[in-house]
Nucleic acid binder design. Structure first.
Lengths: 132, 132
DNA sequence: CACGTATATGCGCGTTGAAGTATATAAGGA
DNA sequence: TCCTTATATACTTCAACGCGCATATACGTG
C-alpha cells in the first residue's frame, strides 16, 4: 500500500476520513457510527495513519484520531493537472454527479470561470489547493 | 471496479491519464511513451473508458483516446470536503509536494510521509461541500 | 490483583485485479 | 486475396487486500 490513491480507494477508509472531517473521534466512536467491527476500524486506521492521513493522540485507553492535511494536498496536486481540462465542462457535471458514490457530499453553487485552454507538452502545474 | 477511486488507484492508469492531458493519443502512442505492453494498455483503457475517464474515436485502424471530465469532477467533489481542512496548512504542503511524482509510470514514488508533529484543536464546523 | 473496557495485532480464507501470453478482430495496402 | 498494422479479448497464474475471528496489550477501577 504505497500511494495515497490506493489508500482512498477503500470505501470504509473514505467513510472514516469523512467522519473525521467534523472532529476527531475515538476508535469506538468510529466503530459505532459506521457500524464496522472494531478490528476492521483499527486496521483501516493503521493504514491511514501510516499513510499520513490521520494521527492519533492518546486519551487514557482511548486513541483519538484526527486528520492530517498532507495526503489530501497530494491528491489535490495530482488532480490539478486535470482541473484546467474539466473547467470547460461544468454543465455536464451537474448530470453526472447524481450517479456518484454515497460518501460524497452535495455541493452548493458551481462557479464557472477560468479560461479554457488546450496545450501540448508540459503538464507541470502547481496548484495551491484553491478551487473556487 | 466500481468507484472512481479504485480506477485511479492503479499507477499505470494514472500515467495514461496524465499522458492524455496534453492531447489525445492512440493506443500505440501510449504504448510507446509509457513502455507498456499493448494488451496492458488496452485493458487499462477499457477500464478507464467504462468508468468514463476517457472516450475513444475511431481513426481508421486506430483508436484515439481522450479525457472526459466527469470522473475528475467527482474526485474533486469528494476532495472538497477536506479542502477547508487543509487550507490552513499550505506551508507544510510545499515541503511535502516535492516528494511526489507528477506523472508516475510503473512503480515509482512511494510517497511515504514521515511521522509528523502533533496538532491540537478540534475543528467543529459543518461541511459546506464546495466544488470548483 | 482481578476485571472490564478500549484498541491493536496475528492468522487463515476468499476475492479481486493486474500481468503475461496467445489469439481474435478489423482495417489498409500490395 | 494475402499480409501487415492496430487494437481488443480470453485464459491463466500470482499476489495483494479486506474481513472474520481469536487473542494480545494497555489502561482504569474496584
Amino acid at each position: 500500500m504505497q500511494s495515497v490513491f490506493e489508500i482512498i480507494a477503500e470505501p470504509n477508509r473514505r467513510a472514516i476520513l469523512s467522519l473525521l472531517v467534523s472532529s476527531q473521534q475515538s476508535v469506538g466512536e468510529i466503530e459505532r457510527q459506521l457500524r464496522m467491527p472494531q478490528p476492521t476500524v483499527s486496521k483501516h486506521l493503521r493504514v491511514l495513519r501510516e499513510a499520513g492521513f490521520v494521527e492519533s493522540t492518546v486519551d487514557a485507553q482511548r486513541r483519538l484520531y484526527q486528520l492530517k492535511p498532507e495526503p489530501f494536498q497530494e491528491v489535490n496536486a495530482w488532480l490539478a493537472q486535470f482541473r484546467r481540462f474539466w473547467s470547460a465542462h461544468l454543465d455536464a457535471l451537474e448530470r453526472h454527479l447524481d450517479h456518484m458514490d454515497p460518501s460524497t457530499p452535495k455541493r452548493a453553487t458551481p462557479t464557472k470561470s477560468k479560461p479554457r485552454r488546450r496545450r501540448r507538452g508540459s503538464n507541470r502545474e502547481r496548484d495551491k489547493g484553491e478551487t473556487q
